[in-house]
């Protein structure tokens, strides 16, 4: 039962992910991305990771994608204004994408087989257990990440701020 749901969800996720890339209209592309995030949320629910699911839902679907759409709506996305990218940029893009693919293939090859054993049903994804794990076993990485995020925030504020003189 859960296997077939998993395969269905994975299919939907990949389908929408591909549509993100292939959609002509950037707004449609962003909306497909919302759907991709939604199916990833469903994956988390399947893993009984309720907190992660809902946080993915709120942060990615509710905030980040809204922001991306918000920024896109300010842009003039008419066909006439689209600039032809220079040829070296295209080459750089192809090389970067190729390298990424290589990395992914290497990573997949390293995993054992690809056989899906039964989905782990445990309560690690529930809020209390997750909180305890984060603040006991992974306290240092957690704090380091928060400092990293803080510095990123300060940096972006500095970049966005107009120079006064």
């Amino acid at each position: 039962m859960s296997h077939s749901i998993f395969y269905l969800l994975s299919f939907v996720t990949l389908l929408f992910a591909l549509l993100v890339v292939f959609a002509k209209n950037p707004i449609h592309s962003a909306l497909y991305m919302v759907m991709t995030f939604f199916s990833i949320t469903c994956h988390y629910i399947l893993l009984n990771a309720q907190f992660l699911a809902i946080v993915n839902f709120i942060v990615y679907m509710g905030a980040i994608m809204v922001l991306i759409l918000f920024a896109m709506m300010f842009l003039n996305l008419g066909k006439e204004t689209e600039v032809q990218k220079p040829i070296y940029l295209k080459f750089a893009a192809v090389i970067a994408a190729g390298l990424l693919m290589l990395t992914i293939f290497a990573a997949i090859k390293k995993t054992d087989g690809g056989e899906i054993s039964g989905l782990p049903i445990n309560d690690i994804g529930l809020v209390k257990n997750l909180g305890k794990t984060l603040f006991k076993d992974f306290l240092l990485p957690f704090e380091i990440i928060s400092i990293l995020l803080l510095s990123a925030m300060v940096g972006s504020v500095l970049l966005a701020k107009r120079e006064i003189n």
């Binding site: 946080v55 839902f57 509710g62 809204v66």
Partner: peptide, 11 residues
Amino acid sequence: LYIFGVVSLGV
């Protein structure tokens, strides 16, 4: 959080 998420989806 569910309510919060669905409300943020409303936009």
